[in-house]
Design a binder for these strands. Structure first.
Lengths: 223, 223, 223, 223
DNA sequence: TGCTAAGCGAGACGGTACGTCCCGTCTTAAT
DNA sequence: ATTAAGACGGGACGTACCGTCTCGCTTAGCA
């Protein structure tokens, strides 16, 4: 749970309830005050302990908050309905999910501090960024396998486009509507889809309840 | 130059050399230490003055650094060579320029602090973000006028795509190569261009020295 | 009224209402907050003016407060009832009077600051100390003339004894009772009176209403 | 050594060298600049530490200076030569001693600040005032036991007279000469001695080397 | 009576010192 | 041996007040 597990051979065992108390205090404080306003002093106070007890477990504020965040963010599962358009729309939501779970301003302030250390930056990426990318990457792979995306389309670039757009809009307070997402998908798929028109038709068919016999949402190209 | 200019009716006039000294000290310190490590104490020390003299001019660290940054960032002019592909490639550079002028980590830490106040956030946007967007927006308008972009293409969305991609890649330390930019442009233009193939051909022609008679770089659609 | 009268040749005349307002604000603040807590800032605020207006009239806090005090302390008149014991008892009250008019702690803090400049010290003496001494000195002279005190008694020493005792006891918060004063007088007069016993008898006679025919309170030595 | 010793159970022990450095810096600064000009900032600077380190030990300037003074003032021992006049003369010196050890203006400014708090005032009394009074009180008791002072003489009053006279004269810059002291003693003893003339004769005899057989300085009354 | 310049009012300046918060570390006692 | 927790030394904060400077206005005295 904590970063600094140490040798843990002999000696007095660490109080595991303190781990929990500290992490919970951290999360509450993060919600209330944000990252910059969060002081270890106050975390210790709320956890009913002292600052050294925190430092013994984490190297500082950033690693502590990363640990705390990790207990709350859950690993997203890749959308895979067979409808590429729907899956992509859902993918936007996956990227948005982190910002709905943790205050975006806190996330950004945290990353600003993480940037100063390669390890922290990597840890932030693994904890906050990658899970969403991994899930959406899987979704894109499915779409490609399904034949909806061109084989030669740069899927990492697509990931970057989606992830960055969501990040940018959230960061600057311009919330991304479903419609925004839809139109963004259109732009991207025009460049990446084998047949964008077909994807669109299939999606509309779904909305109208015209499902395939087998109940899946495959897009029938050249059908 | 400073934020707190106030009424400035009566009273002893402000020493303008101090303004300069403070701003310069701020920029140097920003380059050396980044935003989080920048303290008003040290700024005052280097500027040969005292903290209150700074507080009299700026409300705090964030506004001070914004002012300092503003003296260094220059307003970009919109690329307009007639070659849409070239212009767009150049547009990526415009968005990158700010990060080359000011340490990206400093910019992000600064924005993290600005987020806490609507005014500061707005000020950051005006100072750091908008100039690039404005320039590139103009470029897109030219391209549209030229008939290279579809009339109904969402130009603000294009701006968001480009700006966010650059921001995201820089933020996470994955520097954007020229090739990356080129391929991103391809993806975006597939969705937004009237005739992407024609744009590509024109661009290649230019590289090979095949200029039009009139020396401009018009794209001849359907030519 | 103010210290710095200046050349006063041409130019805009000084607003005399400001003098008054400043002095009154000073006295009020002195009563409320004492000397150390009294700031020119606050005086100016209460007087509805600015600090420079004060500095134009007085060289600083100490001279200002001295001026303010001077408007309140009135010159005591020397006790002269003919009864030396009574007059001396009254003399103690004269020395006490200043401390009843102005907070003793304020007076002492003021003097502590005055000590740093010979002129201020002198001014303090003239304003606060000397008036009482002058009055009591007169009283002692009358007693001597009356034949109650020895010609060769050191009257300045007596003044010092009385003044210092009062100052010391007030300073250290041990208020001097009438009885204390009476017994102090006894001690001093044992050393300074021509015939202490006679003075005592006379005083007691007065209390019992045995006045001389002429209504004065002469002491009849050798009577 | 410092005021805020607290429980001192657990926790990192205080650096005792800092205590010393701070106190020494305080004394030096007190000698150089006086009390009002003494700033904790400068004390910290000279002691090579920071202001918080001082505040951790003392509640402010006054308690700090009181502690510093206490390290320099040594407890006077009561004069007891057998010659009451000599002892009293020496008693004046005891009261003067504090003012010779610490700048009188500093002492007074310090007391002016102490007055604002009962605890500080008490502490000042205990540190600066009482030691001298205690010593001289003892001397007076010896004189009484010896039969030189009247049993019913108010010895506390005598203490007040001597202490206050010294304080007053020093305060107002009128240094007390030996002769002044002698004549003051005369006045006081006229009121308090059993036989002032005999005390005087005894004292003069001592000056001329006429000691008693047993080498003590008894006063022979009625001899 | 109109002009000039001295002096006034007030605002704001540059700067010192304040008392506090929080950091990251050290130390003792307990487990 | 290692914990829990108190306290330490210190950097930086934002503020109050100081004493001074500058401005624009008022007014006396001269033309």
């Amino acid at each position: 749970m904590s970063d600094r597990t140490g040798t843990r051979s002999g000696g007095r065992p660490r109080d595991p309830q303190l781990d929990t108390a500290i992490l919970e205090a951290t999360l509450h404080l993060l919600d209330e005050a944000g990252y910059t306003e969060l002081t270890l002093e106050e975390v210790a106070r709320r956890a009913g302990t002292s600052r050294p007890a925190i430092y013994r477990r984490w190297a500082g504020r950033a690693p502590l908050v990363l640990s705390a965040i990790a207990t709350r963010l859950d690993v997203p599962s890749p959308p895979d309905t067979g409808c590429t358009l729907c899956d992509l729309a859902e993918s936007f939501n996956i990227f948005l999910a982190a910002y709905r779970t943790i205050r975006p301003d806190a996330l950004n302030a945290l990353y600003s501090e993480c940037v100063r250390s390669p390890e922290l930056q990597e840890r932030y990426r693994r904890t906050v960024v990658e899970p969403s990318r991994t899930a959406v990457r899987r979704t894109l792979e499915h779409a490609t396998a399904r034949g909806d995306l061109r084989e030669d389309a740069d899927r990492e670039q697509l990931l970057d486009f989606v992830a960055s757009l969501v990040h940018y809009r959230v960061l600057f307070g311009r919330h991304l509507s479903d419609d925004d997402a839809e139109r963004a998908i259109e732009t991207l798929l025009r460049g990446a889809a084998v047949d964008y028109g077909a994807l669109l038709e299939h999606s509309e068919a779904l909305e109208n309840g015209h499902l395939d016999d087998d109940g899946t949402h495959h897009v029938h190209i050249g059908g």
